[in-house]
C-alpha cells in the first residue's frame, strides 16, 4: 500500500502540489486526470523520487520514500515519462538495463526493433520501447505518464494489456490520461487534480455519478446501450 499524506511541493517559489492525501492499493489501476498544468506530471515525478524536497509523507509499505536507499527506491517505483529522452543508444543496450528487458519487448510483439537505434524509431515505437523498459523494471508502483498520447489503436491495445497484466500481478498502476472516456474504461479508480490540489479521488463509478467531469472539464457522461460510458 502506498500512503500519501499532506503532500505539498514548491519549486523555485511556485506551489506545484498542495496538500494531497491519497492511498493507493495493490492490484488496482488508478487514472490520473487533470487539465494541463494541474500537477499530474509533478505528482508522478514526486512518486518516482525525481522531486525530493516535498513536505508531507509518501510511505511505501509503511516506509518513507525519502529515507530509502538506492536499491530500495529502485524496487519501489518505475516511471514511463511523458517526454522521452533523445538518444542514439541502441534498443538492445537500453533494454539490457534490467534482466528481462528484451523479453518484455518480445512480449509486446516488437522484438524486431531490438537492433535499431532509438533515434530512428517512430514516436509510437519509441513509446513502446520505453514501456518495455518500464515494465522490465520490477517495482511496486508503475507510473505511466500519458502512455497513449502518441500511440495508434493497435499499440493502445497492447498498452491496455500491459496495465491489466501489471494489476493482475498485484502491482499498483498510476496512469495519466487526457482522454477521460479512455481513462474511465481502463481504470478501477480515478484521481483528479486541479491547480495542484486534489479535486476528486474515488472509484470510477463514483466519478461517473459525480459532477467532477462537468466541473473541471466541462464534459458530461453518457451511458451507451452496450453499457460503455463516454464523456463528451
Amino acid at each position: 500500500m502506498i500512503r500519501i499524506k499532506n503532500l505539498s511541493l514548491s519549486v523555485k517559489g511556485r506551489a506545484l502540489l498542495n496538500d494531497i492525501s491519497l492511498t493507493l492499493e495493490e492490484g488496482r489501476i488508478y487514472a490520473l486526470l487533470g487539465e494541463n498544468g494541474s500537477g499530474k506530471t509533478t505528482l508522478m515525478r514526486v512518486l518516482s523520487s525525481y522531486f525530493r524536497s516535498y513536505s508531507g509523507s509518501i510511505e511505501f509499505g509503511g516506509r518513507e520514500l525519502r529515507t530509502l536507499g538506492r536499491k530500495e527506491r529502485d524496487g519501489m517505483h518505475s516511471l514511463l515519462p511523458q517526454l522521452l529522452p533523445q538518444s542514439d543508444i541502441s534498443v538492445r543496450c537500453l533494454l539490457s538495463m534490467y534482466r528481462n528487458g528484451l523479453a518484455c519487448l518480445e512480449a509486446l510483439g516488437l522484438g524486431h526493433l531490438k537492433d535499431s537505434r532509438l533515434n530512428v524509431l517512430s514516436g509510437g515505437e519509441k513509446e513502446m520501447v520505453f514501456l518495455a523498459l518500464a515494465i522490465s523494471h520490477d517495482a511496486a508502483l508503475y507510473l505511466l505518464d500519458e502512455p497513449e498520447a502518441s500511440l495508434d489503436s493497435n499499440y493502445r491495445k497492447k498498452t491496455e494489456r500491459v496495465m491489466m497484466d501489471l494489476a493482475e500481478q498485484g502491482k499498483t498502476v498510476l496512469v495519466s490520461f487526457h482522454d477521460i472516456t479512455r481513462a474511465v474504461a481502463l481504470s478501477d479508480d480515478v484521481i483528479v487534480l486541479s491547480h495542484g490540489s486534489l479535486a476528486f479521488f474515488g472509484s470510477k463509478d463514483e466519478f461517473i455519478s459525480s459532477d467532477t467531469a462537468d466541473r473541471i472539464f466541462s464534459l458530461s457522461s453518457h451511458t451507451l446501450d452496450d453499457g460503455r460510458v463516454i464523456f463528451i
Binding site: 518516482s48 523520487s49 525525481y50 527506491r73 529502485d74 524496487g75 523498459l133 523494471h137 507510473l143
Partner: peptide
C-alpha cells in the same frame, strides 16, 4: 533524470 531517479 526522470528515468534515472525512478531507477533509484
Amino acid at each position: 533524470d526522470e528515468i534515472a531517479s525512478s531507477m533509484g
